[in-house]
Nucleic acid binder design. Sequence first.
RNA 1: GGAGAGGUGCUCGAGUGGUUGAAGAGGCACGCCUGGAAAGCGUGUAUACCCCUAAAGGGUAUCGAGAGUUCGAAUCUCUUCCUCUCCGCCA
Length: 424
Amino acid sequence: MLTLKNITESKDEVIRRLAKKCFNGKEIIENVISLDEKRRNVQTQLDAGLAEMNKLSKEIGDLFKQGKQAEANEAKVKTTEIKEASTKLSDELKTIEAELNSILVTIPNLPHESVPEGRVAEDNLVERSGGAIPELGKDAVPHWELAKRYDLIDFELGVKITGAGFPVYKGKGARLQRALISFFLDSAREAGYLEIQPPYLVNADSGYGTGQLPDKEGQMYHATADDLYLIPTAEVPVTNIYRDVILNESELPVMNTAYSACFRREAGSYGKDVRGLNRLHQFDKVEIVRIDKPEHSYQSLTEMVDYVQSLVDKLELPWRILRLCGGDMSFTSALTFDFEVYSAAQQRWLEVSSVSNFESYQANRLKCRYRKADDKKIQLCHTLNGSALALPRIVAALLENNQTPDGIRIPKTLIPYTGFDIID
RNA sequence: GGAGAGGUGCUCGAGUGGUUGAAGAGGCACGCCUGGAAAGCGUGUAUACCCCUAAAGGGUAUCGAGAGUUCGAAUCUCUUCCUCUCCGCCA
């Protein structure tokens, strides 16, 4: 969430920038500011009362020690009044703070100045693109048919075992998954990221830390018996490593990578969007996460985007990078680049990665801070993450784009990992 | 799941009602000492919020979390979470 300091110190700018995210913040920001004034006022009064109490308590203690019982008892009477007032003020403070917090979590992050105006996906800017879109013959088929033809992925079997959106990968289909995961992790490590194997279940605190809770609770599978949540992305456990942590400036940027299975309930979805591998309840993804200092975070974002680009290039997939417009960005992001690869048989672009800088929005909730080297002051870190990459749609594009009469060709980079060069 | 022990600052560790934000030790930082280093000596070493702010300064809260008793709680009571040990189960 946004910091109170940011809101109160640059109210007009905050309102202006929120507008780009199609968020009318005028009224809500005014409300925050007046609540904050009230909060400070109440705390000042409360603190004064408590200070008086502490003073009196010490005096009473001294009086008892000196055996002056009568005077001590007299002083006790005075405390009752102060105590009552303090209790009232304290309750008031808690109410105000809770209200303030509940409002703050409804305000989205401010978009970066470079975010284009726009409301919907069509308003996103194509930043750049690469790779050649293959010319497939008339008999080209979508990946779900290829998966069946070569017995790579069994969607119906997944339905039997679990339900829709939980495919079973078999044979070369399973080996391709494993190859991609290894390739992505090895590449990330070579690029300087520390490999992490996180838990797949997280507690509620972690859910709040990265912002899945409370508003997006429905997106996550909830293991109610133990009150744990299945992770929708490795971002959640990996970023939460740094919850309530004060890093040294010299440790930044932190660069972590993790593979995990990801679980998403994805309530509203329909039609061709959900065919085959396009949208699943369980899928595999390698994530990259960075924690950085503010003045370097956009450099980090650029490096992350370039890194993801190197992956799709190595996989020989046609790709494009979108700079998301204000209206299409996620709630928490300040700047997001989406990667799409072209799925030649479906004749559509598929999102395979989303690389974002959250600036201090997520860090504020996480309380992830760092100590500056020069003046030792503590301030919020910036957090960033990106998929590098999500497997299902990469697999869809690989299968479709590389289909030939003889079988499905495996890109050169992947062959050492798969152990085969063609699926036939 | 059953039984027991325990959660204190960067770490270890003392502390069973009153100048304890917290002894002591270690670590770390800076300074002195040294030709250099070690040892030694000295100083410092939490976070959040509020007031005041140019700076300095002052206040409040925090000893897993929450509630209670009390003029006063790290210390007493209750609730809760977590960790460890033994048993059971088990990849």
